[in-house]
Design a protein around this nucleic acid. Structure first.
Lengths: 202, 202
DNA sequence: TTCGTAGGCGTACGTTGTACTCCTACGAAA
DNA sequence: TTTCGTAGGAGTACAACGTACGCCTACGAA
């Protein structure tokens, strides 16, 4: 066997993630990643077959840092919440890559492992059949949506002047946007999830 | 004043939406839309400054068909649910454009109108301050996530053989995927939302 | 030392968005 | 009715993208 690879898959993924973190998702380019590694553009194709596969590597790298073992907590609600918070924390460190989570949520081992973990908690809590389907999908929908929303806040992101203009046509929206300033992403995520969990409890 | 425009903004948006519905979001191209209209590619730039703006037109066209007047229903939970279902129905007719909803959820009048409608219901139900922020964001997160998930089912979409392979490593995931076949998107959406609303009620 | 395999990379092509420039249609003004 | 200025339509062209192809070369096995 000839020659050794000068790169590990993790290094490649790390370089891609570095580009995304620094320059944004739009700058995730085969050329940019190659430059990040001081390599020729086409050399990347010795490690991935696609730009799509490169994106998947980024997803796996981020989700790979998450511990999906079910935490030892008194209630199943706390177990679900802890799992979700772990995911949120990992993703929070790389907000620009969130859209990749959505695009590659199929065919991603990390996403599947997270699903399995959540479902095992639900199963242990007595959820089965269609009830479990509904519960699981609701949790996943919330998780996906919340991570998206956190990436670029639809309310708190805008400046105060924009809100003033907004306020004339949409008073409730403007008022809520002001209140939103005092709610941290973590609280928002956690308490929103708590609402859903409360609904699941009844 | 010289010359009349041969196109309305709606016609342009409709052409773009037709391309998306027929050929998928990836084929939404300035050239493709121009061809759909039997126009030169650059002529489109008399109506939009950007490809981005063209995408926004598509979003507005889809959301423009939604009635955001608060429905006259007994409980505020039913009012919220009805509003969300209207949105789901409109989007359901054009599943390929769902990602555009996410990308342009800021700076979209349609999205803002939907938010204002939901918030007015919440306000009428007695939600105020930070509680309203949490409730609103939770609802929006669920809505966004659920619409995404519906576009391409993460569980039911895969073939049975894939599930079998999956089942060895992820038994709960495989089992839930089987149950998921009997749950229609509408039920899934509605009952998931009901869970969240129940959590909001307490 | 030799050789075959596989890594690295330069070139080039098709596709994208869009800047620039031209031609022309047409309503208003004469 | 004629003229003219404005704005719509389209062709050309370019930069940036993903990536197919083919070359050179490093290096472990023989």
């Amino acid at each position: 066997m000839p020659r050794k690879r000068s790169l590990t898959t993790d290094q490649l993924a790390a370089a891609a993630l570095a580009v995304v973190d620094r320059d944004g998702l739009a700058m995730l380019t085969m050329r940019a990643v190659a430059q990040e590694l001081n390599m020729g553009t086409m050399s990347l194709y010795r490690y991935v077959s696609d730009r799509e596969q490169l994106e998947r590597l980024v997803v796996e790298l981020v989700l790979g840092g998450v511990d999906f073992t079910v935490p030892d907590l008194p209630t199943w609600q706390e177990r679900i919440a802890a799992l979700c918070e772990r995911i949120r924390l990992a993703v929070h460190a790389h907000p620009a890559m969130v859209p990749l989570l959505l695009v590659h949520r199929h065919a991603s081992p990390g996403v599947r492992r997270s699903g399995e973990a959540m479902l095992s908690v639900l199963a242990g809590a007595g959820f089965s059949g269609e009830r479990r389907v509904i519960a699981f999908r609701a949790l996943v929908s919330y998780l996906i949506g919340a991570l998206q929303a956190e990436g670029l806040g639809p309310l708190s992101g805008a400046g105060t002047d924009v809100l003033a203009t907004l306020g004339e046509q949409h008073p409730h929206l403007a008022e809520t946007a002001v209140s939103a300033r005092d709610v941290s992403p973590q609280r928002e995520f956690g308490e929103g999830l708590a609402l859903l969990l409360r609904g699941l409890t009844a």
